[in-house]
Structures are given as structure tokens and as C-alpha cells.
């Protein structure tokens, strides 16, 4: 498959300030859906703005289908962007919002009519064409934004946290919708989110970003199974992260637990998901600070010599009330082994 987008050592900054994104390189293949996953402020939107052409890089290059577009203005790039805020045109109807890009391209009336009808139907808004965009619900506005961006058949579609303003149920529904549209139209997409679940569900590959850099790039399966840095591990749900320090496990706050079994050479850190922590037996002990019932599981916060441990047990198992002493184990078999030298 061809590489549609290449970011080549991009450094992005606002004014003369410190760079928001530094030395970022990435390539996206035709038809892929790559997610940028990272906490707020890590530079996801900044990167999207640069790819769209709304922000000129301080250094580095952007290639689209092999052509250097770093200096090409945004209206000539053929890159679509769905804004987090939707940015619909308030004075226009749904039809005219979706037709906007086609009119700018001076398409014929017949093409405009048929394309708008197709897109409006594809996002499930047939019948709403003549409503003002401001008269729609959040979910419907989101669909209009999507139809508007897709109507001009962009080479690359960028979506900046497109679902974050929707409620949880709608979000899952729209997620499925997006995947269907992506498959149906084969559009290459870059999807920005700070929601790990969303990234895992949607992506061909995920780029986990932290402080203006890509910490790890890989398939959802690879990231979920083998995070390369403690940061990625935390983001992938390995909530108990320890650095290997001789024969001790050191938590982020400096507290320590003895290391029972050596993980082998070249391992910088170990990380456990709450489910991987075994409760009731083991070499460590602590006090249950909180226990919260989640339906099919119970989440525990345990104060130990190694700081707060997050554990989770099946709801059927013995309930351990807050305040009780509990012994636990961090089995090496259930840990993610984070190699030395990768990332921060």
C-alpha cells in the first residue's frame, strides 16, 4: 500500500514560544485510520492544524501522496477537518452546509444535489436538509459536520475529538457509524482522541502522544499487550507502574516494594493492570482504602509500602471491605515488561 501522508521531523510552535510538537515523524498509508491518543495539551490538535495547513511548521516537511505540501495553503490541500466544535455555518441549512465545499469547487448544480443527498443519507439525516444547522441536536450537528467534510471527497480526513461533546451512548453509536463510513468510502483518516477505548476500537494504528512527541506507534493489539514506555502503559490501563531498581520496585512517588522475581536483563519497568493484581494471598500486604462495586467487578484501592495499588476482582469473589488488611501479589506472568531505553 502507498504512503498517503508523511510527517518528516515536524516541529510546531505558536509564535516564538516553546515548540508544542517537536521532531514528529509518522507515515500513514492509504485507507488507514490512525489515532493520535494522548492527554489534553500534548499537541494533538496542533499536529492536525499543521497537516490541514492552518499552522505553518517551524521546521520539517509534510508530504501528501509523495508531494511536499508544507507550503501549500489549506484550501489547496484536499485535506478535510472535522472540528471538535463542529464549526457549522449558522446561517446555512443542512443542505447548504454540506454543499459548501462543492460550491467552492464550482461543481454543477446536478452534481451538488446528488452528492449532498448521498452524504446526508449516508450520515442518516435524510429529511433534515432544510433545517438550519443551529436547530439540530449535538449528535445531528456532528453528523452534518462529517457529511460536510466528506462531501468534497478529501484525500485525507482529520477528525479532532469529534465525539467528545456527545453523551456516552451516542458516542458508541457514532463510533460504529464512523467505522462504517470509513470502510464504505475507504477514506484515510487521522482521528484525535484522549479516550483510550475509542482509539482501541477504531484504529488501524495508534500513535500515543506525550508532550509533543510520539511515545509509541503501533496496532491497538501491540500497544495493549506490550506498551513500550511507562506513559503508554498507564494510558493502556496498566495502572500500577513500577521502575525496576535493583531488587526493588519503585513507584512514581518514590515508595518501594521488594522485587520477588527478577524480570531479566533489559527491563526498565513493570506494569500491572488492576485485574492482574491477585488479592488474598502473596508476598505483599496493604490496607483497603476504598472498594467500589462496578457490577461485574469490584475495584479496590490498596495502601501499601509501594504506594496506592489499584486492583480489580470479579464481583463473585469475596468482597473485602474498606479498612481491612489484605495480602496481594504482583505476578510477573501478568506484567507488561517495559524495555529499557525506549521513550521517556
Amino acid at each position: 500500500m502507498n504512503e498517503l501522508l508523511v510527517l518528516d521531523h515536524l516541529t510546531l510552535a505558536y509564535g516564538r514560544g516553546a515548540p508544542a510538537v517537536e521532531g514528529m515523524s509518522l507515515s500513514v498509508k492509504e485507507g488507514e485510520l490512525v489515532s493520535f491518543l494522548g492527554p489534553s495539551g500534548c499537541g494533538k490538535s496542533t499536529t492536525m492544524r499543521a497537516i490541514a495547513g492552518l499552522l505553518t511548521p517551524r521546521s520539517g516537511r509534510i508530504l501528501l501522496a509523495g508531494e511536499d505540501v508544507t507550503a501549500v495553503p489549506p484550501n489547496k490541500r484536499g485535506v478535510g477537518l472535522v472540528f471538535q466544535s463542529y464549526a457549522l455555518f449558522p446561517h446555512l441549512t443542512v443542505f447548504e452546509n454540506v454543499a459548501f465545499g462543492l460550491r467552492a469547487r464550482k461543481e454543477s448544480a446536478a452534481v451538488i444535489r446528488s452528492r449532498v443527498e448521498e452524504m446526508v443519507a449516508a450520515v442518516g439525516l435524510a429529511g433534515f436538509e432544510h433545517r438550519l444547522s443551529t436547530d439540530l441536536s449535538g449528535g445531528q450537528q456532528q453528523r452534518v459536520a462529517l457529511a460536510r467534510a466528506m462531501a468534497v471527497r478529501p484525500r485525507l480526513l482529520l477528525l479532532d475529538e469529534p465525539l467528545s461533546n456527545l453523551d456516552a451512548r451516542l458516542r458508541i453509536e457514532m463510533r460504529a457509524e464512523l467505522m462504517r463510513l470509513q470502510r464504505e468510502y475507504g477514506i484515510t483518516m487521522i482521528y484525535v482522541t484522549h479516550d483510550q477505548g475509542e482509539a482501541l476500537a477504531l484504529s488501524s494504528r495508534i500513535a500515543v502522544m506525550n508532550r509533543g512527541r510520539i511515545e509509541q506507534l503501533g496496532t491497538p493489539q501491540a500497544l495493549y499487550a506490550a506498551p513500550a514506555t511507562p506513559f503508554v502503559a498507564t494510558f493502556m490501563g496498566f495502572e500500577n507502574v513500577f521502575t525496576v531498581d535493583g531488587n526493588q520496585l519503585a513507584a512514581g512517588d518514590g515508595s518501594k516494594l521488594p522485587l520477588v522475581q527478577q524480570p531479566g536483563a533489559g527491563v526498565q519497568a513493570l506494569a500491572w493492570r488492576p485485574q492482574a493484581v491477585t488479592l488474598g494471598s502473596g508476598p505483599y500486604s496493604g490496607t483497603v482504602r476504598g472498594a467500589s462495586y462496578q457490577g461485574d467487578s469490584v475495584e479496590y484501592l490498596i495502601d501499601s509500602a509501594g504506594g496506592t495499588i489499584k486492583a480489580s476482582a470479579a464481583a463473585g469473589s469475596n468482597f473485602i471491605p474498606a479498612g481491612s488488611e489484605v495480602s496481594f501479589d504482583l505476578p510477573l506472568a501478568g506484567a507488561a515488561l517495559i524495555p529499557a531505553g525506549a521513550g521517556a
Binding site: L54, G80, A104
Partner: peptide
């Protein structure tokens, strides 16, 4: 009271900066 990102949206849909002003700012 008018969002400024609609101008960026108009530009990404193919209008020039000035064209975007007349297409989406002026009417509002």
C-alpha cells in the same frame, strides 16, 4: 459572538481567506 473556526472550516472546504470572509462572516 461569531465562532472564528467557521472561517477555518470554509477555507478547508476550498475557499480563500477573503472568500471565506464573504461567504461565512458577512452573512452573519
Amino acid at each position: 459572538n461569531l465562532r472564528s473556526d467557521i472561517e477555518e472550516a470554509a477555507v478547508l472546504l476550498g475557499r480563500s481567506r477573503l472568500g471565506a470572509f464573504f461567504a461565512v462572516v458577512m452573512p452573519n
